[in-house]
């Protein structure tokens, strides 16, 4: 009797064992195991810190310390103070302008490389386009200061040529300078996604459209442009999101009236030691970026669906 009972128990144990063994050897388990170091790193170094600034943003700032009293005062200040509101709006405006300029200027370049360059030379062109992006960002931004400065390259050249008598002052230490510099810095970011989207377009579609009687311009308008929209949308987001948080450019070429949100955040953290307010500003900036991006994605959902077909 006892023996049969034991025997009856055996298959259940075996079953559990092999099921565990199967899971361990299964694709899901191997995949999870393999990704876990990287995922864990992102969890510790990204998720936890993001949670931490979320927490800090609702704490009270004390002198040299942070008090554990929950409050919304930081957000009230970040959103209520006209100074911060102005900085925030300016950041949005600058980012939006930079994005618009960059993507509009980038589209023809991507179009040229995708449609008019022979396949074997495409990667050379892309390489040429990406090289400037990899060279010292700090020095590139600083060079714009040199170019646009009071006695910089533009002014000294124009004066030598006798086109102007006085140096132009509207090109440095203001929003214009920030827009020019950022548009330059983020150019490859805009070109690459548009290029990839254009590459994916089946060329016979364009021939079909012309075969059906559309002119080349209308073919572009009715076929090429809509099909490349996923790339344009990606380009917009890839330019918009980081530019709003750029620190170096406004600091170097923006002057007092070109300051953006990251300069304010840096000020709170490193100068004024007000972590809670700095965190509230950072969280607000992220929230705005996310909200704008989501609205943008929503408005373009029609184009993105095409890609999934």
């Amino acid at each position: 009797m006892g023996a049969t009972g034991a025997n009856r128990g055996q298959p259940a144990i075996m079953d559990a064992k092999t099921r565990w063994g199967r899971f361990r050897r299964s694709e899901a388990a191997s995949g999870l195991l393999l990704i876990s170091p990287t995922a864990l790193y992102a969890l510790l170094m990204l998720a936890v810190p993001l949670a931490a600034i979320l927490l800090y943003s609702v704490l009270t700032d004390g002198y040299l310390t942070v008090e554990w009293t929950p409050t919304l005062a930081n957000y009230a200040e970040a959103w209520g103070d006209p100074l911060y509101r102005q900085v925030m709006l300016r950041s949005l405006f600058v980012s939006a302008t930079v994005t618009l300029v960059t993507v509009l200027l980038a589209y023809p370049v991507a179009y040229y490389v995708s449609f008019h360059v022979s396949p074997s030379r495409k990667s050379l062109w892309l390489f040429l386009i990406t090289i400037p992006f990899w060279t010292s960002y700090l020095i590139r931004v600083f060079l714009w200061k040199v170019i646009l400065g009071f006695n910089g390259v533009v002014n000294s050249s124009l004066m030598t040529l006798g086109i102007i008598d006085e140096p132009l002052t509207f090109i440095l230490y203001n929003v214009n300078a920030v827009v020019i510099t950022l548009a330059h810095a983020y150019a490859p970011f805009a070109i690459l996604p548009i290029f990839v989207a254009l590459e994916k377009i089946d060329r016979s579609l364009l021939e079909a459209s012309q075969d059906l009687g559309e002119s080349r311009l209308l073919t572009f308008w009715r076929v090429t442009l809509p099909l490349s929209m996923p790339g344009v949308v990606a380009a917009v987001l890839i330019v918009f999101i980081p530019t709003i948080g750029d620190y170096v450019t406004p600091q170097l070429v923006g002057g007092p009236e070109g300051r953006m949100i990251s300069n304010a955040i840096q000020l709170q953290y490193l100068r004024l030691d007000n972590y809670p307010l700095g965190s509230a500003l950072a969280v607000s900036a992220m929230a705005i970026v996310t909200a704008v991006s989501l609205v943008f994605l929503f408005l373009n959902r029609r184009f993105l669906r095409v890609r999934q077909q």
């Binding site: 694709e27 191997s30 990204l46 999101i241 955040i265 840096q266 953290y269 965190s279």
Partner: peptide
């Protein structure tokens, strides 16, 4: 490999690509 939560996990790991660097900097600092 295919595993549960693959998309979100990889998306999260790739997040720093689109996150303003200043956010990464201050949150790590904190």
């Amino acid at each position: 490999y295919d595993f549960p939560g693959k998309g979100p996990i990889i998306g999260f790991i790739m997040l720093p690509l689109v996150l303003p660097e200043i956010i990464v900097a201050v949150s790590l600092l904190v």
